[in-house]
Design a protein around this nucleic acid. Structure first.
Length: 379
RNA sequence: GUGGGUAUGGCGCAGUUGGCUAGCGCGCCAGAUUGUGGCUCUGGAGGCCGAGGGUUCGAGUCCCUCUAUCCACC
């Protein structure tokens, strides 16, 4: 259940109550695709860096180790030793981004596993069953994430199909939640708005899915190649058409600047691979901008990634040492960068929440945007 | 000391019967990456081809001398 605490302009400060605890919003979910955050980050680390929610992946866990295995192990929470909320992505995006060969039909999608190439079929019911076995806190609807650009006719047909799939997801989820051997009978379901950059398709589709009374609503199919202006414009027009008493989740976004702008347009939930992937690649976020620790200028730099940062990496190690670890391909290098980046994102979300509570989000956003757009040079 | 081999960007190598603006891999330097493949991609810097002399219209490629280095044998 979503509870709005405070509004500052369109920015919302809220709490989302779940059986696995409350989520303070706006929130950035830390991405742990295969039941782990890449870069050797353990769930025991996450409490230290302020992680509220982890995102895991239906598709990845279905192909390995298999959702039935996870269910036998007591569900995702017990499997990965994480007692706070988990959101599972439905596999919709992975089918489109990872699988090479695929055929989209009304019943679902036929595609090949990226692990061993074997044929897999996934449709709304399959995705819901897998997510029910995983027993995540929040399940995402099985949708199609069309590429950018897609022509109008295709986008319309795709968005309509996503609505039909959503209705099937909802029915299947209700059925699964009523079964006695279901681990999490309170599993929540978020629907997904699609429509690309066609605002009328977005709006009509948002109105349709809003009638289904789901636990939350996501905006998908953005940050796939369109300009920032187009993305923000779609948020401007689509968010007001989603239920305002439910959380709004912008899928796969994004940079600190993207998040600051999107919060200002009413978004509550985010997730993105950037902090972890960039961390693995030695790119670290700071209030002076992004730094690439592979750069030679850090070779003998004894300062932490960011002066004054309270993350485990900055409290203990220098840029020069971490650069060496990265160059030597020591796993500790990427681990420290990932921890720093997730801490940076989680901390930024906490700052955002506080700024909204104190009715100064506009001012905060302006100042933070300037900070994160820096060159990475020390002040 | 004798015989043989090899000398080409930081490292390892290609360079066909002399015709190149001297390439390749790794490394290095920088940049991409948005519901995760730790991958991948894109740029860039860096060589008067061991030194000197010759043959030729033309030499990294052929000849001579020297130097360095490796192997074998004394």
């Amino acid at each position: 259940m979503y509870q709005l605490i405070k509004k500052d302009g369109r920015a919302k400060r809220g709490v989302f109550h779940t059986v696995h605890g409350d989520i303070q919003t706006p929130v950035f979910m830390n991405v742990g695709t295969a039941a782990a955050i890449k870069g050797a980050v353990a769930t025991t680390d996450l409490k230290e860096i302020g992680t509220q929610v982890q995102l895991s992946n239906t598709y990845h866990l279905h192909v390995r180790p298999g959702d039935r295995i996870v269910k036998q192990m007591g569900g995702l929470h017990r499997f990965m030793n994480w007692d706070r909320p988990i959101l599972t992505d439905s596999g919709g995006f992975q089918v489109f981004s990872l699988a090479g060969l695929r055929r989209i039909r009304e019943e679902g999608v036929y595609f090949n596993s990226h692990i061993d190439g074997r044929k897999i079929f996934m449709g709304p019911e399959e995705s819901m069953r897998i997510q029910s076995n995983l027993a995540s806190t929040i399940a995402m609807a099985f949708d199609e994430c069309p590429p950018y650009p897609s022509d109008r006719d295709y986008m319309q047909a795709s968005a309509d199909r996503t609505v039909r799939w959503l209705e099937r997801c909802k029915a299947e989820m209700e059925r699964l939640n009523s079964l006695p051997d279901t681990i999490n009978q309170n599993q929540l379901l978020f629907g997904i708005n699609q429509g690309g950059v066609y605002e009328d398709i977005r709006i009509a589709q948002a109105d349709q899915i809003s009638r289904l009374d789901l636990d939350g609503y996501a905006i998908g199919g953005l940050a796939v190649g369109e300009s920032h202006e187009e993305m923000y414009h779609i948020l401007d027009v689509a968010v007001p058409h989603l239920p305002q008493d439910k959380p709004t989740y912008l899928m796969g976004v994004g940079t600190p600047a993207n998040i600051l702008e999107s919060v200002d347009r009413g978004v509550d939930f985010f997730d993105c691979v950037y902090p972890s992937r960039n961390g693995r690649h030695g790119h670290v976020y700071t209030n002076q901008g992004k730094r690439n620790l592979f750069n030679q200028k850090y070779e003998t730099d004894s300062r932490p990634i960011e002066e004054g940062c309270g993350c485990p990496a900055c409290r203990n190690y220098s840029r020069g040492y971490i650069r060496h670890l990265l160059k030597a391909k020591e796993m500790l290098g990427m681990r420290l960068c990932v921890l720093h980046n997730l801490y940076f994102y989680n901390t930024m979300m906490a700052e955002i929440r506080q700024a909204i509570e104190e009715n100064r989000y506009g001012e905060y956003k302006k100042q933070k945007l300037q900070a994160v757009s820096g060159s990475g040079e020390d002040a």
